[in-house]
Design a protein around this nucleic acid. Structure first.
Lengths: 349, 349
DNA sequence: ATGAAAATGAGGTGCGCAACTCATAATTTG
DNA sequence: CAAATTATGAGTTGCGCACCTCATTTTCAT
């Protein structure tokens, strides 16, 4: 047992910095808060004192003195699937936890209509300090995000990115990697099958995340497991009924179907089709996003594995990152990295 | 786009609560901070007002007014393997991030010697508000933890639990579930192999986490994949050299070895033995804890999959939980749940 | 009823900082 | 070199709360 002594070096305050730099408290304050009226040389002296003393503003005190809550708004899909619904629930939880430092509003938007999303961003009230939005890649959306950034409103993208825009951070997973992960798992799990066709169902390849997952999946299957035939994607718009029809058609057309990858939501439909034909547990089915439904299907071995992004983590991370950005605090990249989670029956949370 | 109005309902302060309850600010303060001198009826009136107004103490203000840092101590293994070393690094990071709300000390202890750990706990200076410790199950350790709890020092166990003690929280994974996860992955990945022996190497089955993982692994293999023979555990004390010898012996004795599960650390030794015999990539090898080494082996397909607990998450979670406990703030179970992470080459962070 | 004990009120102080005001000093410009 | 400009100092206020003191009221046991 080796202990570091109980020496309390007393944390440096702004007053210490001012004294050390040989300026008044007011000047030190002006310098550190970026207010005008400080010469460059003075500013440098103060910054030197800051580093010399290792000064870090007391966040709680600063928050209290500012006496003003930050205002965030989250733009989320209007017609939410179960993943988006749980994301929204987590955002609400986060809003409660974060008060009073930040007040979080939620606004709904048809994020799949780029114009609607762009309009929502363009007409964003100036009262908001920051925006988290489920984005899409579209020139007008990009322009709207850039305008917000230009006027000083910080923007993060959530779940779905707009990488060419001026958003300063993306909260979400690497979707091509998620697709590759699905591919590797499919190949590994099919080790026993000599060959055979694999079906792929997506919401829509017009959605960037679905397209990217599809790309990653195909990449791995083609290069590592070429003995399997990956069938063309069927687009079911995350709709259980349409997915059911797609799955039923797949099963009928390919009696030797060995694998099934659903890139999007609407897993109930697929489950129904599999059960109907009595081929549940005979097809290696990989799905995305842990929900009550996928959890149940995982437990009864109908789904082999679920690839998930933790909605709670995403909601909290987005809020944390915005808070840090608005208050000049550092961001811990390790904490904010959204992992690609793999769930089996055995490591379910 | 449906917006919630920009109405600022102004957060209730302690003064509001006092007024609402018809008492003075001093009494409300006494009641809410658990100081003596408040009748039960008055306390109830105040608590009613709190719920009626939805009052929540302003954490930043409370922190500031208290003007006293919480003191935490982390008891970590003295002779650290790479996982423990990274855990310690993350604890140091967390210490920096948490200042000045809490000051975190790190003390080293031979956690595998129950007496040494017990002594460290028993002689813990009273200055500490809370302790996070890598625990073991042992009567004297349990008693020491209970004593700490009895005198008001909050204790969490970290990575390794002492479930019968009065620790109020365990920060770590469910190790039997981790073992089951390894078993399921082993079975799935071996789908192609008709049958064959599977080797198991552990640090020591005297360590609770290793024993639990072993139990979970065997459980799944026996019930779900009985066609494989799980060989008796070899204990290598997480030492690369000893593990190398064990792995070499296994490979020599079982030319048809199909799988290998390393429950603990010391993966370099196993890698060396596999490479030596030219049987890397031919044996499905499942390892624990993501490190530079396991990462490398994962990337070159020598390790099939790594089951991980996120050390950074554990360090931050322990600190957060202690902070919340000491300041009476709520804990978000969702955020504090340590997941059993599965890593393939494709979803590496 | 009476004294002792407990409960409560009133008020103050300070935590570290942001955000002001106003006076004074230093610097630049015409 | 004076006037205009800019930089700086000194000081104040208040954020919401914890923690303290001291006076006053209420409650309870005798």
């Amino acid at each position: 047992m080796n202990g570091e002594g109980p020496d309390l070096p007393r944390r440096a305050t702004l007053e210490d910095v001012a004294r050390e730099a040989g300026v008044s408290l007011a000047t030190a304050d002006r310098a550190l808060n970026g207010r005008p009226g400080v010469r460059a040389v003075t500013r440098a002296r103060i910054e030197a004192a800051v580093t010399r003393l290792g000064y870090r503003a007391h966040p709680a005190a600063a928050l209290l003195a500012r006496n003003r809550s930050l205002r965030f708004v989250f733009l989320l899909p209007a017609n939410a699937n179960s993943f988006m619904a749980s994301l929204e629930a987590y955002v609400r939880d986060t809003a409660v936890a974060l008060a009073p430092e930040a007040l979080i509003d939620i606004r709904h938007v048809d994020v799949f209509d780029p114009s609607a999303l762009a309009i929502a961003l363009e007409t964003m009230p100036a009262q908001y300090d920051a925006v988290a939005t489920v984005a899409v890649e579209h020139p007008r959306v990009r322009a709207a995000i850039d305008d917000l950034a230009a006027r000083g409103t910080h923007v993060v993208t959530l779940v779905s990115d707009a990488p060419t825009s001026q958003r300063f951070h993306y909260v979400g997973i690497d979707n091509p990697a998620a697709g590759r992960t699905a591919g590797s798992l499919m190949g590994r799990f099919l080790g026993g099958a000599a060959e055979g066709p694999i079906g792929v169902i997506a919401g829509s390849l017009a959605l960037r995340d679905h397209a990217e997952r599809h790309f990653g999946f195909n990449q791995v299957m083609a290069t590592e497991y070429p003995r399997f035939t990956v069938l063309p994607v069927l687009e079911g718009h995350d709709d259980p009924a349409r997915n059911r029809a797609h799955a039923a058609a797949l099963l009928a057309a390919h009696p030797d179907l060995v694998g099934l990858y659903n890139i999007g939501a609407g897993n109930e439909g697929i489950a129904a089709a599999l059960k109907e034909t009595g081929r549940a547990q005979k097809v290696v089915w990989i799905a995305h996003e842990l929900s009550a439904e996928t959890r149940r299907l995982l437990l009864c071995d109908v789904i082999a594995t679920v690839i998930d992004q933790n909605a709670g983590h995403e909601a909290r991370s987005a809020a944390r990152v915005l808070l840090a950005r608005c208050s000049g605090a550092p961001i811990n990249p390790d904490q904010e990295r959204i992992r690609i989670d793999i769930f089996l029956r055995d490591n379910l949370p």
